[in-house]
Computed example of a mutant assay.
Amino acid sequence: MRYFEDMEPGTITHSPRSYKVTREEVIDFASKYDPQPFHLDDEAAKQTFFGRLSASGWHTAAMTMRLMVETMQDGEPQAGLGSPGIDELKWIKPVYPGDEIRIEMEMISKRRMKSRPDMGLTRSENRVYNQHNELVMRFIGNGLIKVRDPEAPIEDEPAA
């Protein structure tokens, strides 16, 4: 089990596999959660910035979450406790049916929580690429991770 103490800023993790985006899934997701014409109809999409049917950004985020969970499950189990949210979500390029996306996760910081000494907060920059290695989405993910020894003293944050 990987605990907060085992995690090192600067570590980069790549998803071992990609996720293939299908036309059916794009339309199904959009019809339920983001029913804008450019996610549902080829002709309507041709008249927009996208130029053709594209996945909703929220669908891209959901597919990315799938890749993140699969990547965590493939590695050593993590003592994860959930997430308080994400920051700086940017959709950079459209994702189209037929694209294959993959994720690269780089831990950028971690700190013990003074209010909850049994857990720590990690921050990771998450970058999503298509099959052409083009960046399509990025965000900062915040993760809550169980501390191995909650009785250990909390070190002061280093000066910036």
Rank of each mutant, 00 (worst) to 15 (best):
P153A: 07
R123M: 13
T60G: 01
G82P: 13
E100Q: 14
K32W: 07
K32H: 15
Y33K: 07
L144H: 09
P117L: 05
M107Y: 13
T71I: 10
I154F: 13
M105E: 15
P84R: 07
L135C: 12
E157I: 15
N130P: 09
Y19K: 14
Y33N: 02
S15Q: 05
G75P: 12
Y33E: 04
N133A: 08
L121D: 04
T13N: 11
T71Y: 10
P16C: 04
T22D: 08
K90M: 10
Q78E: 13
Q131Y: 08
Q47N: 15
K93V: 00
K46C: 00
T48E: 13
R112W: 06
H59V: 00
R123S: 10
N130A: 00
P94Q: 05
Y3P: 03
P16D: 10
E88L: 05
T48P: 09
E157W: 12
G143S: 13
A159T: 15
R2E: 10
R112Q: 11
L81C: 06
E134L: 07
P158T: 01
R123C: 04
R17E: 13
D118T: 06
P84N: 05
P150V: 03
G141I: 01
G120W: 08
A159F: 14
F139I: 00
A30N: 03
M113R: 12
V136P: 02
G141E: 11
G57C: 08
M107P: 02
R112D: 07
G143V: 02
I101T: 04
G51Q: 09
L81H: 09
R17T: 15
M63Q: 11
S115P: 08
A159G: 06
E106K: 14
K20P: 06
V21W: 08
P16H: 11
D6W: 13
R17W: 11
L67F: 09
A30W: 15
R112C: 06
G57V: 04
Y96H: 06
I103M: 11
